[in-house]
C-alpha cells in the first residue's frame, strides 16, 4: 500500500508538472509549483519511511517550509511586477 501511495503521489506530481508547463497564466504555474512542493513533502515523508532513511521527517518539514517561502516569494514577485506583458510574451514565444 505504501508503494501504491507513493506511485499515486508521483502521478500527481506529474499531473502538476503538466499544469505547470501548460500554464496558461503564471498563476497556474505558481499553483502547480506549490502543489508539486507539497507532493514532494509527502513523497519524502512516505518514501523516506519506505526506504528507512533516518531523519527524513526533518527534511520533509524543511521542505514544507521552503515550499511556503518559495510560494510567497514568487507571489510577491509577480504581484507588483509583471502580469500581462509577460504572459503575452511567453505565449508569443511558444
Amino acid at each position: 500500500m505504501l508503494a501504491a501511495a507513493i506511485i499515486a503521489i508521483l502521478v500527481t506530481m506529474a499531473l502538476a508538472l503538466v499544469r505547470g508547463f501548460r500554464g496558461p497564466t503564471e498563476y497556474d504555474r505558481m499553483l502547480a509549483a506549490n502543489s508539486f512542493g507539497t507532493k514532494t513533502v509527502l513523497l519524502i515523508a512516505l518514501g523516506g519511511h519506505a526506504l528507512s532513511w533516518h531523519s527524513h521527517l526533518d527534511v520533509a518539514l524543511l521542505y514544507a517550509m521552503v515550499n511556503f517561502v518559495g510560494t510567497i516569494a514568487v507571489m510577491r514577485f509577480f504581484e507588483y511586477c509583471c502580469s500581462d506583458e509577460d504572459t503575452v510574451r511567453r505565449e508569443d514565444a511558444r
Binding site: G20, E26, A33, F36, G37, T40, V74, R90
Partner: peptide, 18 residues
Amino acid sequence: AVAMLFGIFSFLVAALFM
C-alpha cells in the same frame, strides 16, 4: 521562458536526489 518554474525545479532536483 518561465521564472516561475524555478520553484518546481528545486523540488524536482530534490526528488532526483532522493
